[in-house]
Design a protein around this nucleic acid. Sequence first.
DNA 1: GTTTTTGCAAAGAATTTGCAGCTTT
DNA 2: AAAGCTGCAAATTCTTTGCAAAAAC
Lengths: 151, 151
Amino acid sequence: MDSLEDSDVADRLEKFKVAAKSSGVKLTHQRLEIFREIASSREHPDAETLLRALKPRMATVSLDTIYRTLWMLKGLGLVSTLGPRRDSLRFDANVDPHHHFVCVRCGRVSDFENRDLDSLPIPAQMPGVGTVLATRVEVTGVCEGCAGEQA
Amino acid sequence: MDSLEDSDVADRLEKFKVAAKSSGVKLTHQRLEIFREIASSREHPDAETLLRALKPRMATVSLDTIYRTLWMLKGLGLVSTLGPRRDSLRFDANVDPHHHFVCVRCGRVSDFENRDLDSLPIPAQMPGVGTVLATRVEVTGVCEGCAGEQA
DNA sequence: GTTTTTGCAAAGAATTTGCAGCTTT
DNA sequence: AAAGCTGCAAATTCTTTGCAAAAAC
């Protein structure tokens, strides 16, 4: 697993400091360490993993602070969450190849089919990739219903 | 929202019956109704939504049966779950355009970058799609680490 | 100094499990 | 009749919230 350059992490931290200042968010020790931790990882950690990584450095940091910080960072556009789920698990009986359109406003996921997108040329030189089983395109945007309303 | 043809739903139900028989899974009233419900929907329902839809027809059906049935259906390959996995929320500090490789065995998600995939031509005639903000490719497969082990 | 943030503990939401009785085969 | 399911209720797991003490600006 290739790791991030220190300079990339420093860049991200700098961005955070600027964003925090301009949005009036206070730069606490906890927030800096939490962000440093997630900014240095390629592993898409969950809150529990971050807690374990931070505990040695910050004995009293707590899970609730981690969650609050992550949502705050997401609000600033500095982190994203994986998958369309901040809510419950969702199931799909369409097992044919298809793609998703996720509305960022209402969270609705709609399917669409498109032959051209079903078998994209995936570069083989991705680190760690063995066998490719399927490719799916996830399109993010604003759906027609939400586009009509004001933000 | 365009709805599914009755014949599609019937096809799916037939598939389920065959799969159930050949895998020794019993065809109960609950399972048939739960599958019929999800097979008739394009909305990627969650368990709670299915419960609400089923209650009028089956007063005593319960959420735990719905969950058990959905995982069983997933085991048979008849439904899929949205999002990377069924574990906790995961966060990512990489907010530049990038794509994901998800290992179906270990669940690990790795990022990769590929300029060609960043701006795919998305057909405009998808129903309900307004503005497209971003596209991301999610590649599913078996990672090198897992490929070395036996299933 | 004021306002925000933290940590704790406790609440909430989503999902899973043990078990006795009921259904399918 | 045997094996596998279901529903209930209780347990888990993950995430959020109220509040007093503490830290940032």
